[in-house]
Design a protein around this nucleic acid. Sequence first.
DNA 1: CAAGCACTTTACGTTAACGTCAACGTCGTC
DNA 2: GACGACGTTGACGTTAACGTAAAGTGCTTG
Lengths: 146, 146
Amino acid sequence: MSTAEPEATTAINGSLPQQRRTYSIGELARMFEVTPRTIRFYEQEGLLAPERRGQTRIYHEKDRVRLKLTLRGKRLGFSLAEIREVIEMYDAMPDGNARQLKRLLEILADKRTNMERQLEDIRLMQRELDDVEMRARDVLKRLDQQ
Amino acid sequence: MSTAEPEATTAINGSLPQQRRTYSIGELARMFEVTPRTIRFYEQEGLLAPERRGQTRIYHEKDRVRLKLTLRGKRLGFSLAEIREVIEMYDAMPDGNARQLKRLLEILADKRTNMERQLEDIRLMQRELDDVEMRARDVLKRLDQQ
DNA sequence: CAAGCACTTTACGTTAACGTCAACGTCGTC
DNA sequence: GACGACGTTGACGTTAACGTAAAGTGCTTG
């Protein structure tokens, strides 16, 4: 459970007209505080598909956004396989058939209930933390008074 | 990411005066939709410490609450080691020295920022889902019209 | 041109969190 | 008293998500 994420983005394809900014694997790795190994692994798992210049990988905005979404998904406890499933369906959307699209909507609904669940969990967990903290402060105060 | 959790509880020690309800490992496993193996594993990792009647494990309310908190923690992406750390410190609280208590408060603060992070992630993720769903419905509608 | 740096692939290693299987004990009951 | 349901302890297997090490490519900089 780390702590990194540059700026905000809107949709899954952060497609402002044509920012011709590209990134090397090292740059991207530093941006998100992961190792290049991790990024290559995500590619191997079908989560990224960067351009190639010869051997070397070239990452565009699209790839950066995908990586960001992937890491966010991970922090929320999704497996890479689950994340890939959504990404793949999203990519297949334009020419997706009705059955596929409906399947996508199902998955999305699923993720949604998952999010709701987590919200509830977080609220409950925050209460526990409140409770434990109160007691700890209490004991501390008593120690001070002696 | 499963879906189970019986009723609500207040503090880490759901200590209503004396509910003399106990549970077998199988009962507990069914309640929370985990396997007995999982529960034994949590014990081995120091997250549970049930009473023993001969060979057999006897679980009380306290154990049930711990298990619940453990599973909730897991859903929020905490490792078993992290969860144990909090539980251990909580147990050591009554006679904990100041240093330990302050360390506990630090950990709690840490978990808190973590929760905040997750809340933000969830909000962002929900927007992505909104976005993807909209587009999917859009494509579907177009397919219907043809 | 040698050194250094960033990149590449291949392949084996590692950790967490269980699953699975064997081999056994202990009830209640048919 | 055999059977089934439930419990027990090992011990080994498995999966996801990388880490790590080896060995090579390609640029550019002193």
